[in-house]
Design a protein around this nucleic acid. Structure first.
Lengths: 165, 165
DNA sequence: TTTTGATATTTTAGGCGTCGATATATTAAT
DNA sequence: ATTAATATATCGACGCCTAAAATATCAAAA
């Protein structure tokens, strides 16, 4: 009740007014940060590489699983529905960046893998992507980033537990 | 470099491998937390009130601006494009929850306001929404939440500055 | 005034995302 | 073996979201 901002930033966080619970303000601030960063990365990926964020994300999952992943595994890791993964994969297949291989163990399943071109293409983009992220966090010092990392681990545990019920 | 998790959680954060920059891991963890919480809230809003998160968000902005907001103001605050706001507003108008009024000052602009029914409806949903958020953060103690709140303010400053260039 | 440039909103085309339903294959129970 | 239950992936309908272009208005300069 001591001070109020001279001019509220015009973004999602302005939804929180003083009578809202602190947790709500905390959540809206989290959301505002994520949207800010995600929108920035999305537009740079598009502008500089002509790729969408979801496609980049899918390729990213495959890059670190060279043995390939089943559609369902991609779905879990990307935290999106299976139907969604089908569509994104279709696009990447059409672009020649990934392939669907029949699973030898389970005739229902596909194994999705990066193609050679997909891997080359991804590595170039990932390098730029990483520098963008570094830039976005550069205004925080080492200690702050470390603390934030730990607190987000706590948040993840808290939210996972609550969401599981 | 001291310890590694026994089994990584199967979500977006698994995209970060050990050779990635710490900032990248930090960003992916931020994203994972936001997705987790946002997906939970989205499905509860749908299941319990039959409303989508974007519509709830738009109404939320109007609730705290009783004088109404122009389309462009909604766009800035919600951090989405103008064309998107047009569509969401159309839906809410069709449901009788908001109205578009002509701006007396500017014939290009509309003032969007909650209707009486919109306000009543929103307040009921907002109450439930707030308790969900409290639940999701309940696994963190008071001090942790306060620290997280401050660190996110720092992140917001950092990212805003970097994104502005 | 007419032009010029900026602002407010909508429209269009295309991709992302959910949900629910379907087809097919696996697994377990009978 | 037959049946039933479960798991994998796709499809269709619908809504969200962006980017770019179109429309309309405003405001200021020539």
């Amino acid at each position: 009740m001591s001070k109020k901002p001279a001019a509220a930033a015009s973004d999602t966080e302005t939804r929180a007014t003083s009578e809202h619970a602190p947790d709500l303000r905390l959540w809206l601030r989290t959301l505002a940060c994520t949207n800010l960063i995600e929108n920035h990365i999305r537009s740079r990926l598009r502008a500089e590489f002509g790729i969408t964020l979801p496609r980049f994300d899918l390729m990213s999952q495959l890059e670190r699983s060279p043995q390939g992943l089943k559609m369902g595994e991609l779905s879990k890791r990307m935290m999106v529905t299976g139907g969604n993964v089908t569509g994104i994969t279709d696009q990447l297949v059409a672009e020649g960046l990934v392939v669907r291989e029949d699973s030898p163990k389970d005739r229902r399943a596909y194994i999705v893998k990066l193609t050679g071109e997909g891997r080359r293409s991804f590595r170039k983009m990932a390098e730029a992507h990483e520098t963008w992220v570094v830039e976005l966090f550069a205004g925080m010092d080492e200690k702050q980033r470390g603390q934030l990392y730990e607190l987000l681990a706590a948040l993840k545990r808290s939210a996972s537990k609550a969401a599981a019920k």
